[in-house]
Write a protein that binds this DNA or RNA. Structure first.
Lengths: 242, 242
DNA sequence: GTGTGATTGTAAACATTGTACACTTAGCCA
DNA sequence: TGGCTAAGTGTACAATGTTTACAATCACAC
């Protein structure tokens, strides 16, 4: 806690330049270290080298600041998820669409095998994609518990799930990334149309629940290996049950 | 916020009698109204008719009080779950040998049963029980969002999941109630033994995730019907995927 | 250029909170 | 009866969110 990143932030000009951004950035730092409760308005202004009240020119109150920080955190979560999805796709290699790692046996049509059946290829891709989404989500929860809690336990509405302020570098929000994976499932024919509606909720619920329980719920303290295994098995359950 | 339950609580005796209990009770009230963040130590002492510092004779700090409140809230959750489990069992009709309540040891002699296929009866009972657990959990989240958040998002360890202080009136903690339902699944042969281990985590994750998302996550604002439907479909997924 | 008005920041102040330290009261037991 | 000790009180302090009044600056029409 001694030599922190930002120096007292002495500022020459009267105007800050982009105080709003600076406050959110400071908020992210604090959220990273201590979750949503650690996002304190005065400290944010301090780090921005500004008087406490200056924050009120950009945010109605502390809660508004916290929400902005939460949105930014969701963007970071989206980045981590995109990364995991990309990694999962890459694992497949150039040609082989063989199942990755812990994917349990769920082959539908035993006729289709390696390369010939295009539908099987689509299905394998879709499964990989969804696993990537879940893996990335849990990875973010484990790697950045403070940001995770900030991102996903600050009250918000479903209607805002696609708000661009929550998007990652690639322009998609976590919810949209998940939705895309489920669309892929539907397109590949492994998710019956009648079950596509609201499937986000179920998949998200499962993974979000694990994330919360792992980082600050009754399941805290599980070893990394246990969490990895649990994630894998949870995803198995989702795949089987969707 | 005007005429609150407890009068200023004027006290004749110097000793309070059971201050600890009074503080937890006050904390529960506040948690009910505003979640964990609303549990404020000074206000609790105020409601108990006592000086702020008196609380420090019973709790190391605000966090210790909050944890005690969370434990009590888990007990209330357990009560709601037991109720739902019992209701689910009752639905089965008088013939069923379903025993609600804390009875976990299932019938040992499969011969004795009303239906023809005893195994099928056991399986149906087990499914009903698990659905009851999930339904009760979500019902608690919806009926008491503040208590739910307090109960299940205050950091704790898995090792404490069976701590009697978290138990409901029937003596079981939420985790134990869930575990009993899964035991019933295993006993009925609908949960392969190799999948029984840690199955609590997956089932809990799914339902807990839905609970969190519904009450103060991105899914807040869904109508009651939508939540009911989502709960049912989520439980379908769990049943299919466990 | 130069006023003029809206933006953005500052100054001072207040109620509330968690918590430490030193004290008092009263229940209990030898 | 006397004293030990648990349980409450009083005072105090630093920190936080937030309000109200004021000052500096930018931006732009003239």
């Amino acid at each position: 806690m001694s030599a922190d990143a930002s120096p007292p932030a002495v500022r020459a000009t009267y105007r800050h330049g982009d105080l709003r951004e600076a406050l959110v950035a400071a908020g992210l730092q604090m959220a990273e270290a201590g979750g949503p409760a650690a996002v304190v308005l005065r400290e944010a202004t301090r780090r921005a080298g500004v008087t406490p009240n200056a924050a009120y020119r950009h945010f109605a109150d502390r809660d508004a600041l916290l929400r902005a920080v939460a949105d930014a955190a969701q963007g970071l979560a989206a980045d981590r998820m995109e990364q995991a999805v990309a990694a999962a796709a890459r694992v497949a290699g150039p040609a082989a669409d063989v199942v990755a790692g812990p994917t349990i046996g769920l082959a539908k049509d035993p006729a289709a095998d390696t390369a010939f059946d295009p539908a099987a290829g689509l299905a394998a891709d879709a499964r990989r994609m969804l696993r990537g989404v879940g893996t990335g989500y849990i990875a973010f929860a484990r790697e950045q518990p403070g940001l995770f809690r900030t991102a996903f336990s600050v009250p918000d509405h479903l209607a805002n799930s696609a708000d661009p302020v929550k998007a990652g570098a690639l322009g998609r929000t976590p919810f949209q990334i998940l939705g895309a994976a489920l669309d892929a499932w539907a397109a590949a024919g492994i998710l019956p149309p009648e079950r596509r509606a609201n499937a986000e909720l179920y998949a998200w619920s499962a993974v979000h629940g694990l994330g919360m329980l792992v980082i600050d719920g009754p399941l805290r303290g599980l070893s990394a290996d246990m969490v990895t295994a649990a994630t894998s098995r949870l995803l198995d359950m989702v795949e089987r049950g969707l």
